[in-house]
Amino acid sequence: MNDTQRPLIQLSEVTKVFLTDEVETHALGGVHLEVGEGEYVSISGPSGCGKSTLLSILGLLDTPTGGRYELNGTPVESLSAADRAHVRNREIGFIFQAFNLIGDLSVFENVELPLTYRDGIGKAERKQRVVEALERVGMAHRLRHYPAQLSGGQQQRVAVARALVGKPSILLADEPTGNLDSRNGEAVMALLDELHRGGATICMVTHDPRYAEFAERKIHLFDGRVVDEETLNRLRAEEEQRIEEQIASRKPAAADSAP
């Protein structure tokens, strides 16, 4: 984030601990993160590093165990479920890996969904905003179709329109290309890039380094902590070294036991 950008997201010392059968799993261990208005950030890291947990906390789908979280200058880490729902609806737009469109609803109804949870928006305005959102993703001609009638790429475009329709402060994308082939994946990335250039703030989780390159800032997570690229490389090298040593230490025993 450069100095001129107003901080939209501010996380300080955010931790998340899961308790399962008396076993504590530290998914996030003191995360510091700031995302400025209009910024395009990618979050990447190996499986189990806490990417999805971090995104859930950013999207107010989950609450941190410790630390502070300010969204648009407002502390949100200890809001009630209803208040979190209210903030989610106004401030955050989600794009999921599996699109998560509701099969029984048409394209129009799927995109309209966030607006139906908001008071004070009339039917005509809802329609106008839905059409606008669909036009932005190039899907206005399919508004009467149902998800099952669309390709994966088209479904993800509709999901992007749904994320945009409420005019949120930030778009959170969780592996948005994970269920798409490379051609459709690139098309969706181009769409996000275009939205970013139009002023949208985007926070994207991806494990694919090619797509991470689309972001203007790359954040790496490792064992629940945010690390810079140099540290990440060092940690990776250490990890690989440890695995090789483990394999080497097992080889003689394996050879002995071979027939």
Binding site: G59, A85, N100, P114
Partner: peptide, 14 residues
């Protein structure tokens, strides 16, 4: 779907 609606801002009462 319930999870999705919640993500999109539906309150528990809704």
């Amino acid at each position: 779907e319930v999870g999705l609606r919640m993500a999109l801002g539906a309150a528990p009462a809704s």
